[in-house]
Amino acid sequence: MNTSYWPIHGFSPRHRLATQLKAAWETLLTHLDATTEPKVWKSADAAGQTLWNAYDPITQMAIDHASADELRTWLEELHYRN
C-alpha cells in the first residue's frame, strides 16, 4: 500500500499570509518613498572616478554621469525653474 501524501493546495495558509504581508509592506514602502524631491545617487566610471546621477520626479528630467559641479548646476537650475 502506498502511503505517500501530496497536498491538494500548493501553498499553506501561512505562506499565503507571508506573501500578502510582503506585498503590503512593499506597497507601503513605495508610497513612503514617493516624494517630489530630486533623487541623487553616485556611480563610478571604469577608472573609479565618482560620477553623479539625478532624477526629478516633478519635471521627469534626469542627468547621468555628471561631475559634482555639473550636478550642482543642474540642481540649481531645477530650483530656479520651479
Rank of each mutant, 00 (worst) to 15 (best):
T59M: 11
H65N: 15
K39Q: 14
T3A: 10
E70D: 14
L21I: 01
A46W: 14
L21G: 02
T35Q: 00
A34N: 11
W25H: 11
T3L: 15
A62T: 11
Q20E: 15
A23M: 02
T30Q: 14
Y5F: 13
P13T: 03
L75M: 07
T50R: 12
V40Y: 01
A24F: 12
Y55G: 09
E70W: 02
G10C: 02
N2V: 06
V40P: 03
H15M: 10
A62K: 12
L71A: 05
A18V: 00
Q49N: 12
P57N: 03
Y55R: 12
A44E: 14
R14F: 03
N53W: 02
G48T: 04
L17W: 08
A62G: 07
L29Y: 06
L32S: 05
T73K: 09
D33K: 10
N2A: 10
L71H: 06
Q60V: 07
W52T: 03
L21W: 02
S43H: 03
W6G: 01
Q20C: 08
E37D: 08
P7C: 04
Y80D: 06
T59L: 10
P38H: 01
I8L: 11
A66I: 05
Y80N: 02
E26I: 03
Y55I: 12
W74Y: 04
N53Q: 01
T36M: 08
M1P: 13
Q60W: 01
A18G: 04
D64H: 11
N82M: 09
W74V: 02
K22Y: 08
L71C: 06
N2H: 13
F11Y: 15
I58W: 01
I8V: 12
W25D: 08
A18E: 14
E76G: 07
A46Q: 14
Q49D: 07
Y5S: 09
G10D: 09
T36S: 09
Q60C: 10
E70I: 07
M1E: 10
T59V: 11
L51P: 00
W25Y: 14
E70M: 07
Y80R: 08
L17H: 11
A68T: 04
L28R: 08
V40E: 04
E26M: 09
E70K: 11
M61K: 10
N53G: 03
H79L: 09
G10Q: 11
A18I: 03
L32W: 13
H31C: 11
P38T: 01
E77S: 07
R14E: 15
A54R: 07
A54M: 11
E77D: 07
L78P: 03
D56T: 01
H79G: 00
P7S: 09
Q20S: 15
M61R: 13
A46C: 06
T3N: 13
T35L: 00
H9Y: 09
L51S: 01
Y55S: 10
